[in-house]
């Protein structure tokens, strides 16, 4: 009883590799992700986020889930001195940077609560794993080389952990420094390993937004291990990173 499939949700290819669960369980995780997209997308006029942004909802009227997402946004904004923000001046509210990791982590929780103990979910390059793909072996998570699309720069060995990468190579300079509103420079790729994808993904994005200062900042996050490539192609790696091959 296993399942493997990909769906395009939240604008992302989301792959589920479920070693001990069936298509019906995977569909529950996909269904949650579609719900999360409908609720949190700033690109959908009817979403809770869009309604809040238009002033049709007050903070008191929000669902606990959106309150949780906004609290995470606030915490990282505070922690980065505003480099990470869900509200770039002159633009609408956009909590996507937090929503993605948070929602995918919850999808993984749904799989786990449904009885699965061995799976890997990959949402646009952000990964949550559970258990082992086969006894005695970790999930081998390759980190894409920032310059060479079909090569890796490190392989992590992960059991019950999350890996997220923020990088410039595909979408152009898409991460803005909230302090200046300008695209961030200084780092090519930030990979963060943590127990929880909401933490890993947001830490990676926030580190990226800080530019070179993000290297030390991310390494200092207590629950995170990092692998960072700066624009001079130097690699910064914290010793606790679960390196499988490097």
């Amino acid at each position: 009883m296993s399942f493997r499939g990909v769906e395009q949700i939240m604008g992302l290819p989301i792959s589920v590799d479920l070693r001990d669960g069936d298509a019906a369980l995977a569909e529950r995780a996909f269904a949650w992700l579609r719900e999360a997209d409908a609720q949190f997308s700033p690109f959908k006029p009817d979403s809770e986020v869009s309604r809040l942004d238009r002033g049709e909802l007050t903070r008191e009227e929000l669902t606990p889930d959106l309150v949780e997402v906004l609290s995470l946004c606030d915490w990282y904004e505070e922690s980065t001195g505003g480099a990470f923000t869900a509200q770039v001046p002159g633009r609408g509210l956009d909590p996507c940077a937090v929503v993605k990791g948070w929602a995918v982590q919850r999808a993984a929780d749904i799989l786990r609560e449904g009885g699965a103990s061995s799976f890997c979910v990959n949402a646009g390059g952000d990964v949550v794993t559970a258990g082992e793909p086969e006894p005695g072996k970790p999930w081998r998570v390759g980190v894409r080389h920032p310059d060479i699309a079909d090569q890796l720069c490190v392989v992590l060995g992960v059991r019950d952990g999350a890996v997220a990468t923020s990088a410039l190579y595909e979408r152009g300079q898409h991460i803005l420094d909230g302090r200046t509103g300008r695209p961030v420079t200084g780092i090519l790729s930030v990979t963060v390993f943590a127990d929880d994808l909401a933490i890993a993904d947001t830490t990676a994005t926030a580190a990226f937004a800080l530019g070179k200062d993000g290297i030390e900042w991310a390494a200092a996050q207590e629950e995170c291990e990092v692998f960072i490539v700066d624009e001079d192609r130097r690699v910064f790696r914290s010793p606790g990173l679960p390196v499988h091959i490097c």
Binding site: N122, G125, R171, H174, R234, R237, S238
Partner: peptide
């Protein structure tokens, strides 16, 4: 215990893997 950063040179390689972490957002990129 603070993670003390180590600095090293960037390498490229191929290896057997189960999944890839990277910033893959567009369907073309995927």
């Amino acid at each position: 215990a603070l993670p003390i950063l180590k600095q090293e040179a960037l390498k490229a390689q191929s290896a057997d893997i189960d999944t890839v972490s990277g910033a893959t957002a567009t369907s073309q990129g995927y």
